[in-house]
Simulated assay, not measured.
Amino acid sequence: MIAMPEEFARSTIEREGEAGAEWLAELPGIVEELLGRWECVPDGKVLHGGVGVIVPVRRRAEETAVLKVSFPHPGNAHEPDAFVAWAGRGAVLLHERDDERFAMLLERVQAATLAEVADGDEVVAVAGWLNRRLAIPAPSGLPRLREQADAWEEQLRRDAEELTHPLPRQVVDAAVATVRELGRVQPDTLIHGDLHARNILRAGREPWLAVDPKGYAGDPAYDGGTLLKSRALTLLEADDPSKAVHRILDVFAEAAELDRERVQRWAQFHAVQAAFWGRRHGFRIARSGPQLDWLTEFADRLAKLLTKGS
C-alpha cells in the first residue's frame, strides 16, 4: 500500500474531522484499485495539494501521468469537466476520470510552479495570458457564478453587520455594488475559478499549463481577484503597496485582454470577502493566532486600496 504524506493527513483531519479520517483510511485502497484499473505503476514520491494527493505514475511502460485523488467535496466536482472542455488548451490533459471517487489520471508536467518565478510582472502576465486561453464557451452543467450573486450579497451584508471589523461602509458598499452590477449578469464563459501562480505549472507541450480548476461559468475578470490575493507577500514587501497593487491589475488586464476597471472591481470584492471570511473561519494556512491576524489585516488593507475613491 502507498503511504500518504503525514502533513496531508494531518491537515485533512484538522479541516474535515471524522469524515476526513475515514476517507484517509480508505485512500490507500482507492489508489491501489485505480492504479490497477488504469494499468499504472507508481513512478515517484507521492505529492499533495490542499485537498488531494498526486501520485506520479507510468502507464503502459512509457507513458507518464499523475493520479490525482481529492477529498469528496462539491467544490471539486467539476474539475474534470473543465479539463474535458479545454482538451489541453492552456491546461493539463485528462486521460481518465472516476467521478464517484473524485479521481483523475492527468498529463504529467513539471513540478515547478509559476510562483517560483522571481519577476513579478512575468508571473502576472503569464496568469493573464492563461486566463485568456482558458476563456472558452462553457458547457452546460457547470455551476454558473451568477447563480451565487444573491448569496454573495446576503453574506456581505450579514458579515458587515455581525462582525467587528475596520472596513468603512464605502468599501463594503463597493463590493455589494459589484455583485449587483457585475455578479448577476455574467457570460457563459468557462473560467478557472482559482487562478493563481501555484496552480500554473511549467510544461513542455505549452510553456505553462493550469491545474486544479473549479470549473465555473462566469466573468473571466473574476479570476483577477484570486490572483491578486495570492500575491500578498509580494505586496506587503513593496515600498509602495498601492502602486504594486495597481501594477498587478494593469499587467493582468492587458495580458488577459480584459477591462481593467472590471478586474479591479472583482479584486476588491474578493478582498472584502476574504477580510470577512478570515474573521469567521480563519484561512487554510492560518486558523488562529498572529498569522491569522496578519492575513486578515492584509485583506482589510487590500480591500481599501482597491476601492475607488477611498
Results as ranks from 00 to 15, higher is better:
I2L: 14
I2R: 07
P5W: 05
E6D: 14
E6S: 11
I13H: 03
R15L: 11
E22W: 09
E22I: 13
W23K: 01
L27W: 07
P28F: 07
I30V: 15
E32S: 15
L34I: 14
L34W: 05
L34H: 13
L34P: 05
L35S: 12
E39S: 14
V41C: 08
L47A: 13
L47S: 10
H48E: 08
V51N: 13
V55H: 06
R59S: 13
E62V: 15
A65T: 06
A65S: 07
V69S: 03
P72K: 06
P72L: 06
P74W: 02
H78A: 10
D81F: 00
A85M: 10
G88D: 08
V92C: 09
V92W: 09
L94T: 06
D98G: 01
F102L: 10
A103T: 06
L106T: 02
V109A: 09
D119W: 01
D121Y: 01
D121G: 09
W129K: 11
N131W: 00
N131C: 15
R132P: 02
S140H: 12
P143M: 12
R144F: 01
D150P: 12
A151K: 03
E154R: 12
R157T: 12
R158C: 09
L167T: 00
P168V: 08
P168Y: 06
Q170N: 02
V171C: 08
A177F: 02
E181L: 13
R184G: 01
V185E: 15
Q186P: 00
D188L: 15
D188F: 09
T189A: 05
I191H: 00
H192C: 04
H196F: 01
A197W: 01
A197Q: 05
I200A: 11
L201R: 03
A203D: 09
A203Q: 02
E206N: 04
P207A: 05
W208L: 05
L209Q: 10
V211S: 03
G218I: 00
G218C: 01
G218N: 00
D219I: 12
A221L: 03
G224P: 04
G225E: 00
S230P: 13
A238N: 10
A238R: 08
K243Y: 10
A244D: 11
A244H: 06
D259V: 12
R262L: 08
V263I: 11
V263L: 06
R265H: 10
Q268E: 10
F269S: 07
F269Q: 08
V272P: 00
Q273M: 11
G278P: 11
R284S: 15
I285W: 07
S288P: 05
P290L: 08
P290S: 10
W294L: 15
R301V: 08
G309P: 11
